[in-house]
């Protein structure tokens, strides 16, 4: 992975790295990706992707509204202004 690709990724995931962190992570990144590349040795043409390790049967909710009882406790985690949650500028 080259520098520009690495920088592009950081931008996509909104991560800023200090110089030290950048060096440490970038060095390992290439070793790890090389290790990941070993998966291509296996032919998986006829194999289906296992999204879960076990088959997960359908579980579905009927359309019945139910109020969450602790909205004030939930909103305590945020900064609010007249019922609204305050967010950054857009």
């Amino acid at each position: 992975m080259d520098d520009s690709e690495f920088s592009r990724l950081l931008k996509i995931c909104r991560i800023h790295l200090s110089e030290d962190e950048r060096l440490a992570i970038k060095k390992d990144t290439n070793d790890i990706l090389e290790y990941f590349n070993s998966l291509s040795e296996v032919s998986t043409k006829e194999v289906h992707e296992a999204y879960h390790p076990i088959s997960v049967p359908e579980k579905i909710r009927s359309d019945v509204p139910l109020d969450f009882p602790d909205v004030p406790l939930l909103l305590k985690n945020t900064k609010t202004y007249r019922f609204y949650v305050v967010g950054p500028d857009i």
């Binding site: 579980k59 509204p65 139910l66 939930l74 609010t80 019922f83 609204y84």
Partner: peptide
């Protein structure tokens, strides 16, 4: 299971639709 309609802001909310850590989605039939 939150209602789809509400008058006051942030009243029809729960951990799932506010993305609170630990919450999980379950599909509406």
């Amino acid at each position: 299971s939150c209602r789809t309609y509400a008058e006051e802001p942030n009243t029809a909310i729960c951990p799932v639709c506010t993305g609170m850590p630990g919450s999980k989605p379950v599909l509406n039939e």
